[in-house]
Amino acid sequence: MPVDAILFDKDGTLFDFGATWNVWARRVIDELAEGDAALTRAMAAAVCFDLDRNSFLPDSPVIAGTNREAAEYLAGALPHRSVEEIEAHLTRSAAEAPLAPAVPLAEFLDALAARGIRLGVMTNDTEYSARAQLGGAGVLDRFDFIAGFDSGFGAKPAPDPLLAFCDAVGVAPSRTAMVGDSTHDLIAGRAAGMATLGVLTGMAGAEELAPHADAVLPDIGHIPDWLAARR
């Protein structure tokens, strides 16, 4: 079946997860701790962040979670701050996260669009952050659809936001591919009736992604070859 539309996850897919979000997470933890070493350790433990390596652990619950879920985990270590206050801080800070594109995005996306493929982004981050980051990377206008967990369609691994993309661009799920770095992305894609592609620019390994994916690729730059092989 030809692919006429591709929906991308954002973090760990369009942008390398470690190079972008490990740096950001350490900065946020330090900001919220305000110099309190005990709070720093408590927050790092709450979100499974290794302070020595400055890296999320592979089993961190926030890697594929929503902004709200991350705030709820951190709130357990910050009893003097509300979940809403922490969530607002995360939203503002994430919009300014240091971006590390997995590939040169403008060139890559333009090549897909030249094939007539409709493009979208669905992230469990906020739509505000997604638009800010895609704008900062100079590719906001390449996408026909951009949604976060707060856009009114739900969050992955539910298929609803993926089906909203198909409705928005007028392409059947069976002619659409979902691309992501987590099982949340791929489970959602399978549930929506889409082709599923895993990429290794996030925290999950090939052995974790493969049971849910039609193919596991090193990064999104290999998608054109995968498309060519389907012809």
Rank of each mutant, 00 (worst) to 15 (best):
A25G: 00
A64D: 02
P79D: 12
E85L: 01
V121P: 08
P98G: 03
S55P: 04
W24D: 00
E107A: 14
H80G: 11
L119S: 02
W21R: 07
L99N: 07
A100W: 02
A33C: 09
F108R: 05
E127Y: 10
Q133Y: 03
D30G: 09
R81L: 13
F49Y: 14
R131Y: 11
A88H: 05
V62W: 01
E85W: 02
L78N: 05
E96H: 15
G35P: 08
V103Q: 07
L90G: 06
H89N: 13
V62N: 02
S129M: 12
E96W: 11
L109T: 10
A33K: 06
I117R: 04
A102K: 04
L74P: 01
H80K: 02
R118G: 09
D50T: 06
L57D: 10
F108K: 05
A106H: 09
A102G: 13
R26Y: 08
S60T: 02
I29E: 00
R118N: 07
I86Y: 01
R115N: 11
A44F: 03
R92F: 03
N54K: 06
F108L: 11
S60I: 03
A130N: 05
L99M: 15
A102M: 00
D50H: 12
E87I: 05
F56L: 04
A100F: 08
A37F: 01
A44Y: 00
P101V: 04
V121H: 08
P58K: 10
L105Y: 01
L112S: 02
R53K: 14
A25Q: 03
M122F: 10
C48Y: 03
E127P: 11
E96C: 13
A77D: 06
E127L: 05
C48P: 07
R26E: 12
S93H: 12
P101F: 06
Y128W: 04
F108D: 13
P58Y: 00
I63M: 08
A111G: 12
C48E: 12
V28G: 01
N67R: 12
V103E: 10
A95R: 11
R131I: 04
A37P: 06
P79F: 05
D36C: 07
